[in-house]
């Protein structure tokens, strides 16, 4: 039986709060990632964030803050590179992604004795989320939700038909940079929950399932948030019960739901 006393532990409450914030982010940002076809970019940003995390460790500052910094810089870098069109976007992402990972691994190794944390960042360790992490995560989540609320109309135009949007005067490149920055913030939150390697799954699976069953954008987002919350809670319970890594448990829950939904909607 599942032990419901787990909420009496502070680390479990932190984990749950971080997980719920992550679910809300996935539900909303994930939809834009899918609709704008920036899945690969988002994955690239997640991997590049690792460079910043490594640097934070090496210098002895908050790794998460440095992770945010490098994720946002990468998002802007990719956005600018692709709009200047000298290098193709794919190539830019590939380069940023690998450079970030290499930098992260090197710097973490140089900062002796952090092997366990390395594992945590790669595969997620939601149970290690601290109270200050939770505060940062809640802050990021509220900023992103506020931006989506303010720019809902503009983001819809951008996602549906950027060529037309530009022709009628929408600041398309600035908005795209804003979207990429929002993805960067979300990705850093998600790294805490499921780890760099699996970020992209949590970002896309709830949206992909919800999209199959819902019609309008707000209802797809709502459905996606609900699914995200379910995946996080079920994954956490499994993780707590079987003593397996939380990231893997959450992602496997999501993956099972995805395959079930694919089979059932046939």
């Amino acid at each position: 039986m599942i032990d419901l006393n787990f909420l009496s532990y502070e680390f479990m409450r932190n984990a749950l709060l971080a997980g719920l914030a992550a679910a809300a982010l996935c539900g909303i940002i994930g939809i834009y990632v899918i609709l704008n076809r920036i899945v690969f970019i988002s994955d690239g940003i997640a991997h590049a964030a690792f460079g910043g995390i490594g640097l934070g460790y090496f210098l002895g500052y908050d790794p998460l803050a440095f992770g945010i910094g490098s994720a946002v810089l990468t998002a802007i870098g990719i956005g600018l590179t692709s709009s200047r069109a000298r290098v193709s976007e794919d190539t830019a992402i590939g380069v940023f992604m690998a450079t970030g990972m290499a930098l992260g691994i090197m710097l973490l190794t140089l900062s002796q004795g952090y092997a366990r944390d390395l594992y945590g960042y790669l595969f997620g360790n939601i149970l290690a989320v601290t109270e200050s992490d939770v505060l940062l995560i809640l802050l990021l989540t509220s900023v992103i939700l506020a931006l989506v609320f303010l720019f809902y109309k503009e983001l819809l135009l951008l996602s549906f038909d950027p060529q037309y949007a530009q022709a009628i005067g929408l600041p398309v490149s600035s908005l795209r940079l804003m979207l990429l920055a929002m993805v960067a913030f979300s990705v850093v939150v998600l790294i805490k929950v499921v780890g760099i390697i699996m970020v992209i799954a949590l970002l896309t699976i709830p949206g992909a399932i919800s999209r199959r069953h819902m019609k309008s954008l707000p209802s797809i987002m709502a459905g996606s948030i609900i699914l995200g919350v379910l995946f996080v809670i079920i994954g956490l319970l499994i993780s707590y019960d079987l003593d397996v890594p939380s990231g893997a448990a959450i992602i496997l829950t999501a993956a099972v739901a995805f395959f079930l939904s694919t089979l059932l909607s046939r």
Partner: peptide, 29 residues
């Protein structure tokens, strides 16, 4: 525009698409 390229399963109704054309009058935010 020339052949609007969009995802055919994009979740918008015809009237929402038309509404997008109001952007140039309504403005940012």
């Amino acid at each position: 525009p020339q052949k609007t390229v969009f995802d055919r399963s994009f979740p918008v109704k015809a009237q929402d698409v038309v509404l997008m054309g109001r952007y140039s009058r309504v403005g940012l935010l």
